[in-house]
């Protein structure tokens, strides 16, 4: 019992030390992407702006902001959900984002957005969005992306849990620019 108390005492001292260190380490920085001095803004589920430059995630197409999907008879904002999910991933990973251009210089075949494969802490953002059922693949996507989409579809996750209009069709119906490579 005495040994147990001594060990607990040492553990408590250790925790107090860590709380103190952790608490004085930093106050709110207010700079979201301090790690790499990048400014990242989420535009929608598959588009980012890094230091003002628009970046489209390669291989996926997500519902647009304002687009809704249906599940069990109720409409849910699948486009906004995809955008917020991407924003949450980036916030919790504190802007550790790495993007590599895909397809030559990364210029999209259509439109002006550049197409990139992006990851945060080695987590492929497009893969994550597909696994959660937030987005769908486009023709020619990586086999890994197709597998991620298949798993989400099998689990009836997100958009696969009900009915939805393909984002490309939704854009046509709502007269949005077709900018997905």
């Amino acid at each position: 019992m005495v040994m147990s108390r001594r060990l607990a005492f040492l553990a408590s001292i250790f925790i107090c030390f860590m709380v103190t260190i952790a608490s004085v380490q930093g106050s709110p920085s207010g700079q979201k992407w301090a790690g790499k001095n990048q400014h990242v803004m989420v535009i929608d589920g598959d588009t980012l702006k890094v230091d003002g430059e628009p970046i489209h995630l390669y291989g996926i197409d997500c519902p647009e902001i304002g687009q809704t999907c249906s599940q069990s008879g109720h409409e849910w904002p699948c486009g906004m959900s995809a955008m917020l999910h991407l924003d949450k991933i980036l916030t919790l990973n504190r802007g550790q984002i790495d993007c590599s251009p895909w397809g030559g210089d990364g210029t999209a075949a259509k439109g002006s957005e550049r197409s990139f494969v992006c990851s945060t802490n080695h987590e492929d953002l497009a893969d994550d969005l597909l696994r959660g059922g937030y987005c769908l693949t486009i023709p020619g996507a990586f086999p890994g992306y197709l597998e991620a989409e298949r798993e989400a579809r099998q689990g009836h996750l997100g958009i696969w849990g009900g009915d939805f209009l393909a984002p490309s069709e939704w854009r046509q119906q709502n007269q949005r620019p077709e900018a997905k490579p």
């Binding site: 709380v19 103190t20 952790a22 608490s23 004085v24 380490q25 930093g26 106050s27 709110p28 920085s29 979201k32 917020l84 924003d87 949450k88 916030t91 919790l92 504190r94």
Partner: peptide, 19 residues
Amino acid sequence: ADASVGRFDSATIEGILIV
């Protein structure tokens, strides 16, 4: 916040919440 306590990015807030 969607990002929970990560939204505040504050070690002080995290320290208080730990206690």
